[in-house]
C-alpha cells in the first residue's frame, strides 16, 4: 500500500486515492476490453481495419466504465 509509516510521508489524500483508483480501473478496463472486445468483434464478423476500430472502441468504453466505478469505490472508502 501507499500508506507509509511514521517516517516523513503522510497518507495520500482522498483525491489522490480517487485518481489512483481511476487510473487503475482504466488500465484494468482497457485490458479487459481488449480481451473481450476482440472476441465479441470477431464473433459479429469484423475483420481487418474495422476490427481494430471495434476493439479500440470497446477498450475505451470499458476503460471509462471501469475507471469510473473504481474511482467511486475508492472515494467511498476514504
Amino acid at each position: 500500500p501507499v500508506a507509509v509509516g511514521p517516517y516523513g510521508q503522510s497518507q495520500p489524500s482522498c483525491f489522490d486515492r480517487v485518481k489512483m483508483g481511476f487510473v487503475m480501473g482504466c488500465a484494468v478496463g482497457m485490458a479487459a476490453g481488449a480481451l473481450f472486445g476482440t472476441f465479441s468483434c470477431l464473433r459479429i464478423g469484423m475483420r481487418g481495419r474495422e476490427l481494430m476500430g471495434g476493439i479500440g472502441k470497446t477498450m475505451m468504453q470499458s476503460g471509462g466504465t471501469f475507471g469510473t466505478f473504481m474511482a467511486i469505490g475508492m472515494g467511498i472508502r476514504c
Partner: peptide, 25 residues
C-alpha cells in the same frame, strides 16, 4: 479474467508504490 486483471493491477501498483516510496528508516 476480470479478477485476475484487478489482482495483477493491485500487485503492480503495490510494487510501483513501494519502489517509488521505499518506506523505512
Amino acid at each position: 479474467i476480470l479478477l485476475a486483471l484487478i489482482e495483477g493491477a493491485g500487485i503492480l501498483l503495490t510494487r510501483f508504490a513501494s519502489a517509488q516510496f521505499p518506506n523505512g528508516p
